[in-house]
Design a protein around this nucleic acid. Structure first.
Length: 109
DNA sequence: CGCGTGACTCAGG
DNA sequence: TCCTGAGCCACGC
């Protein structure tokens, strides 16, 4: 593999690929599990940079408050909304109920 | 090695 | 609930 990136980046990608369908994760959670509790911004950058290469389920990654990261009404926003809905994740006014859909690695059913 | 950028998060008001 | 400022991290140039 041409993975010349940092361990953190690789870990983030793997973590994102581990998020089950019908569940969502936050940038902060991914960053924390990857080893950098404060690397949330980096997670966003990694997604933006590697989604096309690794075909990551970017729609499952949202902000810590349960809202989508994109501007409401934008093309990407609607696209994410549609994908999540197709997976069974209910999105209301650009918000997701983290209490129901947040992925807990410790609880992975 | 420094600087700007970005799909973030937290603390206050 | 919404807005603002400060902090953090990886990447490209």
């Amino acid at each position: 593999m041409e993975t010349k990136q940092n361990y953190f980046t690789q870990r983030v990608i793997k973590l994102i690929l581990s998020v089950p369908k019908g569940k969502v994760a936050t940038y902060g959670l991914i960053a924390k599990l990857a080893g950098n509790p404060r690397g949330s911004r980096a997670v966003g950058w990694i997604l933006h940079s590697s989604t096309h290469k690794y075909n990551l389920p970017w729609q499952r990654i949202i902000k810590s408050d349960g809202r989508l990261s994109f501007v409401a009404g934008s093309t990407k926003f609607l696209s994410q909304c549609k994908k999540l809905d197709a997976e069974g994740v209910l999105v209301i006014n650009g918000r997701v109920d983290l209490k129901k859909y947040l992925w807990n690695k410790s609880r992975s059913i």
